[in-house]
């Protein structure tokens, strides 16, 4: 089923987890249709048709005028993880890697964004899965055609890695080969056909993709 050697079951992504974006949107959260800030992590799936790899050419969405990309630190599970505490959460992690979430521009967060987020090949995962002592100390840096467009310290996320693993593990049992992308920059970077996107976590891994024509 999987087009990627790392993710085997599900790829869960966390939206609205960049504290800069989260704080900037407070007034909007109070209005319709949201009528209140989220009290829980805002989650979405990237389904299996979206999974691709380091080096993959990401398809340009049919008929789209514009696309954006965000990169996230991703947690790869090494063992079954069901209802775990924050204190023990990291024990279930095999290692860490990167996810690129290519999508249409995020218009709003009210309804599941199937049209925007479920595009074929739009979720490259990789390149390597690496054990890390403290994932909160990592920073994800993304460049488009060599120019840095985002620099997101994991410590800037509203909810950290251990908290997310714990919370999500009470909703759904995570299996070996399941992946959580813990948070994307609030300002997704615009991309154009043929662009080269590179994300790096220093000393951990790097993920390179090219937009199709």
């Amino acid at each position: 089923m999987s087009n990627n050697p790392i993710v085997k079951g599900k790829l869960v992504c966390v939206a609205l987890n960049d504290s800069e974006q989260f704080n900037a949107m407070q007034a909007e959260f109070a209005e319709a249709p949201y009528k209140g800030a989220p009290t829980q992590p805002v989650l979405y799936f990237k389904p299996h048709n979206t999974w691709s790899t380091d080096g993959a050419v990401v398809e340009w969405a049919d008929g789209a005028d514009s696309m954006v990309v965000g990169a996230s630190l991703a947690v790869v599970f090494g063992k079954e993880c069901c209802r775990v505490s924050q204190a023990e959460a990291l024990d279930y992690v095999e290692g860490y890697t990167l996810v690129h979430d290519f999508s249409l521009v995020e218009q709003n967060y009210y309804r599941p964004d199937i049209k925007g987020k479920c595009l074929d090949t739009s979720a490259p995962i990789g390149a390597a899965v690496v054990a890390v002592e403290d994932p909160q100390a990592l920073t994800v840096v993304t460049s488009v055609n060599g120019t840095v467009v985002n620099e997101t310290p994991v410590s800037q996320l509203v909810r950290g890695v251990a908290e997310l693993i714990s919370t999500i593990s009470y909703i759904m049992t995570l299996q070996p080969g399941d992946v959580i992308a813990v948070g994307f920059p609030g300002q997704r970077a615009p991309v154009a056909k043929g662009d080269k996107v590179c994300s790096v976590i220093a000393g951990v891994t790097e993920l390179n993709n090219t937009l199709g024509e």
């Binding site: 249709p33 989220p38 805002v42 989650l43 009210y110 309804r111 964004d113």
Partner: peptide, 17 residues
């Protein structure tokens, strides 16, 4: 009880074991 207006119906409502 778990419905929130973010990606509604959210995974907490609809993706439980």
């Amino acid at each position: 009880d778990y419905l929130e207006n973010y990606y509604r119906p959210n995974l907490r409502v609809k993706s439980r074991d």
